[in-house]
């Protein structure tokens, strides 16, 4: 066997050893994760929670489920938001929640949280905060505003001067 062949097999052996050690360590460690558990769920510790893609979120929207926008209000107003969504900036949750509480559905009905798409933290954090408030059916729409608007689904955007609807 050539030197390169031997080196390649050696590298594969390191990968194999690392995989075995990693899986065993994950099994015995207190910090270990479930391999089929959703990574966002593992960190946000939501229970129960569901993570939606764009078609699933659109289905919920069509069913009349309440959507809550977790971004700062400026983004909600001027960048745009899912039509009918309620603004509840997670960074101001304690002050904003009492103001929108009456517009939220009862705790046993569904709510979908979203923010600026993959990589944004606000929607999972908002879902966690709502769960703490007793809402048990909180979904997180992972694609959030970018994917919703790209898909051309119903949206609203407020001009600095006046409100405007799109979609």
């Amino acid at each position: 066997m050539s030197d390169w062949g031997k080196t390649f097999l050696g590298a594969l052996a390191i990968v194999g050893c690392a995989a075995v050690v990693g899986l065993v360590y994950n099994r015995v460690s207190e910090e270990g994760i479930g391999l089929t558990q959703h990574p966002l769920q593992a960190v946000s510790d939501l229970e129960p929670s569901w993570f939606l893609d764009t078609p699933q979120a659109k289905k919920k929207w069509d069913e009349g489920v309440t959507f809550v926008d977790a971004r700062a209000e400026d983004f909600y107003r001027y960048q745009g938001h899912i039509r009918g969504a309620i603004s509840l900036p997670v960074t101001e949750f304690d002050s904003a929640f009492p103001l929108v509480k009456d517009r939220l559905p009862p705790p046993d009905e569904e709510i979908v949280c979203y923010c600026s798409g993959f990589g944004c933290e606000e929607s999972t954090e908002l879902a966690r905060r709502l769960t703490e408030k007793g809402y048990r059916l909180v979904y997180v729409y992972e694609g959030g505003w970018p994917e919703w608007s790209e898909a051309g689904h119903p949206a609203e955007v407020e001009d600095a001067e006046e409100g405007e609807e799109t979609g």
């Binding site: 690392a18 990693g22 360590y25 089929t36 966002l40 990589g119």
Partner: peptide, 24 residues
Amino acid sequence: AKQVYNYQMLSVTASNLFAVTLPW
């Protein structure tokens, strides 16, 4: 695992497997 998943290149299970084995 969450950081890996956010790259949007791997499925849920593949992200977890990658996160568990890559550091080793």
